[in-house]
């Protein structure tokens, strides 16, 4: 399967910090595939998404290296005009908080129609028809009425649907969703996830889903990239990540989730906290919190293949053999 998007060695720096916030991150996304990027606050998952969309706030953030080939063009070197043509067209993004990413002064219908007219030659009436069709597809009740309403009149779940409608209005080949359901209640989250899966199935788009929720990952991902402090520490098919996790951070993440089975064990925790931009350690960035770290971890471990398609950046993997 040839990749729709190929990101290689993406690095992002922030002014004033010695080490990059995102450091040599690489991944592929194929058409129809969902790649979940998972990690905690500050791991660089959102910065990676913003860089792909050309939305880094520069300064203080700056992309200092890497390529991102999307349909044989490099997103990072193409002229801004060309990137604007892609953004919201072939490539679209869904954000966590719809209220801050929808224009409060425009009706829902006008915003979607605007997105349509930016990318294709059509009459205002056609754009409006398309907006209505999209609201139907995201199953917003009474779509004709919602078309005329402003974002503040919609509930959180409806706003997120409206944003999905806008993102999908131009049939993007790649959808980037940054914590799309984190702000929603669990029953509404289930509805929105359901919708995203079925719309993706219909359209065959590739999707990058950024989340911190391993439950969402298990339900939706084809492949997973686990990020920690700006680096991909483990990546592979979703089954490998859950059934054969290798990196001590992945193990720690899985172990720290309270079990729904009711097993009342003491939770295993990852000691300490995520390093700040100013305190990024040298070598393996997880080493200061890692129960298996040794002196060799002062050198950064490569992201090495441990099984077909399953890569891990750890000198100690597999742990039961090398750290016992």
């Amino acid at each position: 399967m040839s990749a729709l998007l190929e990101v290689r060695d993406l690095s992002i720096a922030i002014a004033g910090a010695e080490r990059p916030l995102v450091d040599h991150v690489s991944f592929d996304v194929a058409a129809g595939e969902t790649l979940c990027i998972v990690g905690e606050s500050g791991c660089g998952k959102s910065l990676t998404a913003l860089a792909l969309m050309g939305l880094l706030s520069d300064p203080p953030l700056r992309r200092i290296g890497g390529t991102a080939r999307f349909r044989d063009r490099d997103l990072f070197t193409m002229p801004p005009r060309e990137l604007r043509g892609l953004r919201g067209g072939e490539m679209a993004m869904i954000f966590q908080e719809p209220m801050t990413s929808l224009n409060p002064a425009l009706t829902v219908g006008d915003q979607i129609a605007e997105a349509v007219r930016t990318h294709r030659a059509c009459s205002p009436a056609e754009a409006r028809d398309r907006a209505l069709e999209m609201l139907r597809r995201v199953r917003i009740p009474a779509p004709e009425k919602r078309l005329e309403e402003h974002p503040h009149a919609l509930s959180g779940g409806m706003r997120q649907r409206a944003m999905i409608a806008m993102a999908l209005a131009n049939d993007p080949a790649l959808l980037i969703a940054d914590e799309p359901t984190t702000a929603l209640d669990v029953t509404v989250q289930a509805q929105v996830l359901d919708l995203m899966v079925s719309l993706q199935r219909e359209s065959g788009a590739g999707m990058i889903l950024i989340t911190h929720d391993l439950g969402v990952v298990a339900g939706l991902a084809d492949r997973v990239a686990v990020m920690y402090a700006g680096r991909v520490v483990e990546t592979g098919p979703v089954a490998a990540i859950f059934d054969d996790p290798q990196h001590p951070y992945t193990l720690g993440l899985i172990r720290s989730i309270p079990a729904l089975s009711g097993e009342r064990r003491r939770l295993v925790t990852v000691p300490g906290t995520v390093p700040t931009p100013a305190t990024m350690p040298e070598g393996c960035r997880f080493a200061p919190r890692c129960p298996f770290a040794g002196t060799d971890c002062r050198a950064a471990p490569p992201l090495a293949e441990i099984a077909p398609g399953h890569r891990v950046a750890c000198h100690r993997a597999p742990i039961e053999e090398k750290a016992a």
Partner: peptide, 20 residues
């Protein structure tokens, strides 16, 4: 039914409720 379960092969989160 709506809780996403962090395990492979677990039932996917189900939207058994309509609306909000």
């Amino acid at each position: 039914a709506a809780i996403p379960i962090p395990e492979i092969g677990a039932r996917p989160p189900a939207a058994t409720l309509e609306g909000e």
